[in-house]
Computed example of a mutant assay.
Amino acid sequence: MKDFIGKVAVITGAGNGFGVELAKECATRGMKIVIADIDKNDLYRTESMLIEMGADVVAVATDVSIYEEVELLAKITIDTFGSVDLLFNNAGVVAAGPVWELPVNDWDWIMGVNVNGLVYGLRAFIPIMLKQGTPCHIVNTSSVAGLLTTPSMVAYHTTKHAAVALTEATNYSLQAINANIKMSVFCPGFVQTDLHNCDRHRPERFKIDPNNPYYESKTYKEGLARGQHVITTGIPIDSIAQSVFIAIEDEKFYILTHPQYHPVIGKRVKDMLEGVNPSAEFFTKA
């Protein structure tokens, strides 16, 4: 896809971070835009910004972990604009801690958003794209955490590896039926987003239980501090959307923004092929 003027883009997680930047780039390229986010205040702030840019935009409050809400998002998109050309399956959250400590509620939340949110987006929008038969593109947001693993982010790694596998397998399925839909998986490293504040976006059913001692634990507090540090010291966000759109134009499947991680990704694959066991010593030496 190279011609974006007048085309329709749908962006989940559009209230902050990557979603805002992608929405701005869509507006700059003359697209009609449907933005979705669970946080209405953030969502409508993005909507106001896009309107000021002169964009034709619709904002839909959406919890991507609920299929019926994603299905409604697709319906509103078609009822409003009549088609969909570009889908950014972008909403995401993070939770830190080892598997034996992280509360089940946190697992349900992060799996619901980072995995089911992508599945629901694909399930709701791909049939529409197939029926259209026009050139379309889907970008699933994963992370470099979907291409390597570290000791402290087990739930995040789990969901982001799932995002990569989901995108690869779906891409094969679309190729097998000669669909006119291209796909990309976006795998950035640390970027200055608002991800470390994602707890404020929890829906009621996933709210933190103040009586659960985990949330007063050293593990939880260190995870919050670490998350804040790596995100606030990440690369600036303002060039990310341009990189993603260049990848779309070039029909590039893997979108990686941090080449410094390539040796680590390569080592992981090399170790697999050579039968080398994973070792935590790698991280203590790094």
Rank of each mutant, 00 (worst) to 15 (best):
K2G: 10
G6T: 05
G6R: 04
G13A: 05
G13N: 06
V20P: 01
A27T: 07
T28A: 13
R29A: 07
G30N: 07
I33A: 05
A36L: 08
K40Q: 14
N41A: 12
L43R: 04
L43Q: 08
Y44H: 10
S48G: 10
M49L: 15
M49W: 00
L50E: 02
D56P: 05
V57W: 04
V57C: 09
V60I: 15
V64F: 07
V64T: 15
S65D: 10
I66E: 13
Y67A: 08
E68L: 05
E69R: 11
L73M: 09
K75C: 03
T77E: 03
F81S: 02
S83Y: 06
S83P: 00
V84L: 03
V84R: 01
D85Q: 03
D85H: 15
L86M: 05
F88D: 04
N89P: 08
N90S: 11
D106V: 04
W109A: 06
W109F: 14
N114K: 05
V119Y: 14
Y120Q: 05
A124F: 01
F125Q: 00
I126N: 00
G133E: 02
P135A: 00
P135F: 01
H137S: 03
N140I: 11
N140D: 10
T141K: 07
T141V: 15
S143M: 09
G146S: 14
L147T: 07
V154H: 10
T158R: 09
H161S: 12
A162L: 10
A163N: 12
Y172V: 15
S173K: 13
I177C: 01
K182Q: 14
T193F: 05
T193S: 13
D194S: 14
L195G: 08
H196Q: 08
C198K: 04
D199H: 10
H201Y: 10
P203R: 09
K207M: 11
I208T: 12
D209G: 07
N212G: 09
P213R: 00
P213Y: 02
Y214P: 10
T219H: 01
G223F: 07
G223A: 08
L224T: 09
A225S: 12
A225E: 13
R226Y: 11
R226W: 08
G227Q: 07
G227E: 03
V230L: 04
T232L: 01
S239R: 14
A241C: 11
A241W: 08
S243M: 15
F245K: 08
I248Y: 02
I248P: 05
E249C: 02
T257P: 03
H262A: 13
P263D: 08
R268G: 09
D271L: 09
L273M: 13
E274S: 14
S279T: 15
S279Y: 07
F283E: 12
T284G: 03
T284N: 11
K285L: 14
